[in-house]
Structures are given as structure tokens and as C-alpha cells.
């Protein structure tokens, strides 16, 4: 079986390498891409889509179909990580550690029904507990809002400067991961629950595909945002610009939720009980 797999892999690789000889050579100025496509994008992007950043216009408008499946791939990575790592039921009896904040005494509780009576004075801690670090926690608390603000700026400003849904989504996800690193996983999960994260992940892809389907319903091609002009009450060219923003928001949501999802599953070994 392994040998068969090897043969298939080698054959496919050979075929792929063989076909590359038919490609135009790299950077060839007389290739079809350089003679027809690139000049069209460079000269016509601003008047066709009213987006100053050509990269964003190509990514989310001209090649929108491609980007939609890139988002789906990211969603698929999150789902795969979830199915591989998440442990649905606890097999061994759960032990939870509670630390008395005034005395530093730690209680180990095996039965879940008997939680400490006066819970205000106790805090739940991880097995590998690290003492409270004032510097790191304070600085992270101070920085996280600015990181999230910057992420939203990157998403919304993708029309004019480098950035867009993928980059902004990653920064937004990193801010939640920073919260989980500087505090612990439970604190981060209180801010964004596991279920909400999964739903957001799917909603992001749905926004993208839904925008495309809406264009189809309004009588134009899939992901041809000029169809949205009648809904948004703008001219078709501005509608393409707005359509790009809508799908970028979807991409940002999907990327953010997937980042957090993968991090949580890996850092807690799929248990979501403790972790960084």
C-alpha cells in the first residue's frame, strides 16, 4: 500500500513538473498574463471598482471566487483541528485546583459537586500554575484594545493601504490569544465562548458566499458586486467597492475565529479545561 502511494505521488509529481515546461518563462513580457491581464488591472481598476489598492481589487473582486475558497480552506483547517483534537467527554475523573487568594493554600477537589463554599476568596488555577505577574498582565490589558482597534483599521482600510480581511483577522485573533497567554485559557474563553467562536467562523464564510449568492439572485454573475447597487443605493462602481468591504469583513471574522479555535484546541489538548 505504501509503495502504491509512493508510485502515485512520484507519477503526479513528474506530470506536474513536466507540464511546467509549457508555462511561459517567469516574468516573460510577451506572456498572455503580461500583455492582456496585468495592463487591464493596472489601468482600469480605479475606474471599474473605485478601489485605489489594485491588490485588494484583484483579490476580492476580479479573483473573488478564488479568495472565497481560500476562506473555506481556512474554515476547513479549523474544523479539521477541532475534529482531530477536541475531546468530547472526560474519561478520567476531573480534578480541579482552587487557590485561597489570602493564604495561598491550594485545595484539590476531585468531586465536582463539592466546590468550595466561599468562592469569592478562592480562584481556580491550572495544574501548572504560575504566580500572578503584574507587569505582563497590566501591559497586555493595556495593549489588547489598541491591537483590536488596529486590526479593525487594517480590515476597513484594505481599500487604500496594504491590509484586508486576512491580515486584520489574524491580528484580531492574536489579540485574543494574547489574552489567553497573559491570563489563562478560561479568562479568554469567558470573553469568546467556544460555540460562539465556531459559529463566527462559519458566519464569516457564509457572509462571503452569501454576498456572492445575493449578486446571483439580483440577476448578475456570482460575486459581481455591482448587482448590490440597488440594495445599497449607490452607483454600480461604488457598489463594487462596498461589496469588497463586505466580503473582507466575512474573511476577517472567519480568520479570527479559526486562529482562536486552533490555538485553544492545541494549547489545552482539546480539553478546554486548562491551558495557557
Amino acid at each position: 500500500m505504501k509503495i502504491l502511494g509512493l508510485i502515485i505521488a512520484v507519477l503526479t509529481g513528474t506530470l506536474l513538473i513536466y507540464t511546467t515546461s509549457d508555462f511561459p518563462s517567469w516574468g516573460d513580457p510577451s506572456s498572455p498574463a503580461s500583455t492582456h491581464l496585468s495592463p487591464h488591472y493596472i489601468e482600469k481598476t480605479l475606474e471599474e471598482t473605485s478601489v485605489p489598492n489594485i491588490v485588494t481589487a484583484v483579490l476580492a473582486d476580479y479573483r473573488g471566487y478564488d479568495t472565497m475558497f481560500e476562506t473555506t480552506v481556512i474554515f476547513g483547517a479549523g474544523v479539521a483541528c477541532f475534529f482531530l483534537l477536541r475531546v468530547p467527554r472526560r474519561k478520567e475523573p476531573v480534578e480541579r485546583l482552587y487557590r485561597h487568594t489570602l493564604t495561598g493554600m491550594t485545595l484539590r477537589i476531585k468531586d465536582l459537586d463539592e466546590v468550595p463554599e466561599n468562592l469569592d476568596e478562592f480562584e481556580r488555577i491550572d495544574t501548572l500554575w504560575a504566580p500572578y505577574d503584574l507587569i505582563i498582565k497590566t501591559v497586555c490589558r493595556l495593549l489588547i484594545p489598541f491591537i483590536q482597534l488596529f486590526a479593525l483599521y487594517v480590515i476597513a482600510h484594505g481599500h487604500h493601504s496594504p491590509g484586508g480581511g486576512f491580515q486584520g483577522g489574524v491580528i484580531l485573533g492574536a489579540s485574543f490569544i494574547l489574552l489567553a497567554v497573559s491570563y489563562d485559557l478560561r479568562t479568554a474563553k469567558e470573553r469568546l465562548r467556544e460555540k460562539l467562536g465556531g459559529i463566527l467562523c462559519a458566519v464569516g464564510v457564509l457572509i462571503y458566499a452569501g454576498t456572492g449568492a445575493l449578486c446571483l439572485l439580483l440577476g448578475l454573475n456570482f460575486l459581481d458586486y455591482s448587482a448590490l447597487a440597488s440594495i445599497l443605493h449607490v452607483d454600480p462602481i461604488t457598489a463594487r467597492s462596498h461589496g469588497i468591504l463586505i466580503v473582507e469583513i466575512g474573511v476577517g471574522l472567519a480568520v479570527m475565529a479559526t486562529m482562536i479555535w486552533i490555538y485553544d484546541n492545541i494549547s489545552s489538548e482539546g480539553k478546554y479545561e486548562e491551558g495557557l
Binding site: 504560575a130 505577574d133 507587569i135 505582563i136 501591559v139 497586555c140 493595556l142 495593549l143 489598541f146
Partner: peptide, 20 residues
């Protein structure tokens, strides 16, 4: 301002991890 805040904190965190 942000580099001034985050860079020493990161170094502090790394040193802390080393001690632990």
C-alpha cells in the same frame, strides 16, 4: 509608545520563563 511598552514586557516574560 507601543514598542516602549511591549518590548520590555516581552523580555520580562522571557526572563520569567527562564527562571521558572
Amino acid at each position: 509608545v507601543f514598542v516602549f511598552l511591549s518590548s520590555p514586557t516581552a523580555i520580562h516574560g522571557i526572563v520569567d520563563a527562564g527562571v521558572r
